[in-house]
Design a protein around this nucleic acid. Structure first.
Lengths: 235, 235
DNA sequence: GTCTATCATCCTGTATACAATTTTGAATGC
DNA sequence: GCATTCAAAATTGTATACAGGATGATAGAC
C-alpha cells in the first residue's frame, strides 16, 4: 500500500499527467512549481512567448496550462494584459490559513471515523522512519515530510474532493509554511499527538490538536510574509 | 449596499468577465451554465468544433475555457480524448455534500463573529421580501433564492477564498439541490432560525442548524440522483 | 451470427500567423 | 525637472492549418 512514502524524491503526481500524456500537463506542472516557489515573483506578469520558448512549447498549450492555474488561484488573469503571478498579501494568506484550518480539522474528524488500524500503523511507521527532529536537515525536506503527513490524513478522510481542495490550499501557502518550518521545533511531536488521538478515535481531541498545530495569528503571518519577501528577492 | 439582491434575474457575476472583456470569459460562463444544468449529459464528450461553432468562436479560446472548467471540476480531461462532462455518481455527490457541510458550518461560525447588525438586517429584509413558502413558484426560482441566502452568509464570513470554493461546490451539486428543493416545505423557516442564531451570536447553534439544514444521507442522495437522471434524459 | 482486421473519417493537439491592444521610450513643451 | 504626446516595439487574443491518434464502419473469416 502507498498511503504515505518515506522517499522525499518520490514525485507525488496528483493523478493528472498520465504517463507521456499531453504537453499541457507537463507545462501545467512546470509552471505550477514556478508559481508555488515564487520563481515567478508576486504580481509579476507572465511573458507567454518567453515562457513558452523556455519550456520548449508553443503559446497554445502554454495558455491552456495558464488558464488551469488561474482557475486554481496560482495566477490571476486580466483581459488584454494576460496572466500574472498571484499576489502575496497578509490578508489573502490569512484567509488561506483559515480555510486550511477548517479543512484539516474536518479531515481529521472524518479520518477518526474512517481510518483502519493498519493505515494508522503505516503513518506511525512513517513518523518512525523520518526521525523526530530537524537535526540540521534542509528545510525543504522538512516541509515535504510535513506535507506528506497532512496529505495522508486527508486521504484517510475518504473524501477526494476535500483532499483536492486541501492540496490546492497547501500549495498556495507553501511559501509561508516554509518560513514557519524554520521556527518549529516540535513538529513531529505534534504529529504524534494527533496520531494518538486518531488511535483513540477521539475526534474532538484530534481536531483540537490539529487546529492548534495549524492556526496562525494575523501578526505571525505578516511577519512570515516579510521574511518570505526577503527570501524571494535575495535569490 | 448589495450584500444580497431580491431580483431573481440579476446576473450574479463572480467577479470575472470584466465588461466587454475577453471572449474566453464569455465562453467560460456559457459552458459552465451548460455543465451545471447538465445540458451536457454526464460523461458526454465535448465536441470542440461543434461547440465552438454554436458559441460563435474558434477552438482556441473555447479550449482555454474548457481547461478552466476542468480545473474547477465541472469537466474531466483525458489526453487524446479531450473533455467530457463530469460524472454524476452517488459517491461523488456525497463527498461534495460533505464538503459543503464543512464549509457552510465554518462560514456561519465566522459570520457569527464578523457580521454587523446592519448586514443581518439586510438578510432579514431579503427573507421578508421573498416570502415564506414555495406557494406554486417555479423550483428554479426557489433554488436561486436559497443560493442567494447561503452566498450572503458566506460573504459575511469575510473570507473570499472560502466563498469561492463554496460557490464552486454549490454549483456542482445544483442539480441535486434542485431535486431536493421539490421536497422541502420549510426552507425559509430554517433560514430564519439560522439568522436568529446569528443575531444571538450563538455560533454553536448556528452551525448545528446549518449542518442539519444541509446534511444528506447517502440513500437520500442516491434517490435524488435517480430522479435527476430521469429529469436530465426526459428533456 | 459473431468476431476481427482494415480503412476511411472524425477529432484532438499543437504550431503559426496576424490583427488589435498595450506598453515603452523618445521627443516636445512647460 | 516633470508631464504629455506620439510612434515604435512588444504582447496578447483569436483564427486557421495540419499532423497524429482515436473512432467507427465495412468487409472478410470462422
Amino acid at each position: 500500500m502507498t498511503l504515505i512514502s518515506f522517499d522525499p524524491d518520490e514525485t507525488d503526481d496528483r493523478g493528472d499527467a498520465a504517463g507521456g500524456g499531453s504537453s499541457v500537463d507537463r507545462l501545467y506542472e512546470a509552471v505550477r512549481e514556478m508559481a508555488v516557489a515564487f520563481d515567478l515573483k508576486p504580481g509579476e506578469r507572465v511573458n507567454e512567448v518567453d515562457l513558452a520558448r523556455r519550456l520548449g512549447a508553443s503559446r497554445t498549450p502554454l495558455r491552456e496550462a495558464l488558464n488551469r492555474l488561474a482557475a486554481e488561484g496560482f495566477l490571476t488573469f486580466q483581459p488584454g494584459r494576460g496572466f500574472s503571478c498571484r499576489a502575496f498579501t497578509p490578508r489573502e494568506v490569512f484567509e488561506l490559513y483559515q480555510l486550511r484550518e477548517v479543512l484539516e480539522t474536518a479531515a481529521v474528524r472524518l479520518a477518526c471515523a474512517q481510518a483502519t488500524d493498519a493505515e494508522l500503523d503505516e503513518i506511525e511507521t512513517f513518523l518512525d522512519q523520518t526521525g523526530p527532529g530537524s537535526d540540521g536537515r534542509p528545510v525543504e525536506l522538512l516541509v515535504t515530510l510535513d506535507e506528506r503527513f497532512h496529505a495522508a490524513i486527508a486521504t484517510l478522510a475518504r473524501n477526494a474532493e476535500l483532499a483536492r481542495v486541501l492540496d490546492n490550499v497547501n500549495a498556495r501557502i507553501r511559501f509561508v509554511r516554509w518560513i514557519d518550518m524554520t521556527k518549529r521545533a516540535k513538529t513531529q511531536a505534534e504529529h504524534r499527538a494527533i496520531l494518538a488521538a486518531l488511535r483513540d478515535r477521539d475526534a474532538d481531541r484530534a481536531a483540537d490538536l490539529t487546529a492548534r498545530h495549524i492556526a496562525k495569528r494575523q501578526d505571525q503571518i505578516t511577519q512570515a510574509i516579510r521574511e518570505g519577501y526577503a527570501r524571494i528577492y535575495v535569490d
